[in-house]
Design a protein around this nucleic acid. Structure first.
Length: 263
DNA sequence: AGTACCACCTGACGGC
DNA sequence: TGCCGTCAGGTGGTAC
């Protein structure tokens, strides 16, 4: 679930809680989430230092220390952050626990352990190493056209491919295609210039709206398909039944009446 | 450069 | 009650 909007909410949460406080302890509770670092390296790197700022790229959150390196966080399917007081009980499934000198902790929680925590020298080298495409909210129409340049295949897999465009996953690609009235299996090389421009605008609109709603489906407009896909399975526009099909092994929901494939 | 499919991992849920 | 298959869905690997 943690796609771009969720991670942006985590970023703002971390920004408003855990910056500029001295780290006094680092506990790795599950080494399975470590990527390219050992628990010892992580502890040694963070000990006695402070988080200075954060940067989000796609679904990745990078946290700057006073100087290099950066802490990198990816949330897999079930990850999130929790900042809490000393006296409170550690959250369930916390995999990394950072303790500050003010008596608070920041927990990286990841029930299914599909997330990853690591270190990197810079934002740019991290993006290069992961081969991430441009962030979906940090490019203009021209950049979006470039990301699409020469591609084939379905629009759904294009939107979800982090190497082409970073930040969009299964849930928001469905929402974007619904708002854009495009069938998920539309071929990207068949999209007309006007449709590409509309798709770009809808990507921006949906991601911003989701952030405004704290990435919480219950706070999103009723016209969004997101909250309907499992609740009643009904299209909020035409009230027909939503269809569920499999694309690239993912379940995709769409409205067969409202969403059509261009020739 | 695409696609399909598997694996990773844990918990919820429905069927029997 | 409890076991089992399936699903959830981000990512990476493999085979075609």
């Amino acid at each position: 679930m943690p796609e771009l909007p969720d991670v942006e909410v985590f970023k703002r949460y971390l920004d408003s809680t855990a910056l500029h406080k001295t780290i006094i302890a680092v506990e790795v509770k599950s080494a399975a989430i470590l990527e390219g670092v050992t628990a010892g390296m992580l502890q040694k790197t963070l000990q006695s230092r402070q988080f200075q700022s954060t940067h989000r790229h796609g679904k990745h959150l990078l946290v700057a220390l006073e100087q290099e390196p950066w802490l990198t966080l990816h949330f897999g399917m079930t990850g999130y952050l929790k900042y809490f007081k000393q006296m409170e009980k550690d959250p369930e499934h916390d995999r990394l626990l950072v303790s500050f000198d003010n008596g608070f902790h920041l927990a990286y929680v990841c029930q299914r352990k599909l997330g990853a925590v690591g270190l990197t020298d810079s934002v740019d080298s991290f993006i290069a190493e992961k081969q991430l495409g441009p962030d979906a909210l940090s490019l203009d129409l021209e950049g979006f056209r470039q990301a699409l340049q020469g591609r084939r295949g379905t629009v759904k897999s294009f939107l979800m491919n982090q190497k082409h465009l970073a930040g969009i996953g299964n849930v928001y690609s469905d929402e974007i295609l619904f708002q854009c009235k495009l069938h998920p299996k539309s071929q990207v090389n068949h999209l007309k210039g006007k449709t590409v421009a509309r798709l770009f605008q809808v990507v921006q609109k949906v991601l911003h709206a989701a952030i405004d709603a704290q990435a919480d489906p219950d706070q999103m407009p009723d016209s969004y398909m997101l909250s309907h896909r499992r609740r009643d399975g009904t299209c909020p526009r035409c009230r027909g039944d939503l269809q569920k099909i499999s694309i690239a092994g993912r379940s995709s929901y769409y409205c067969p009446v409202c969403q059509t494939k261009p020739a």
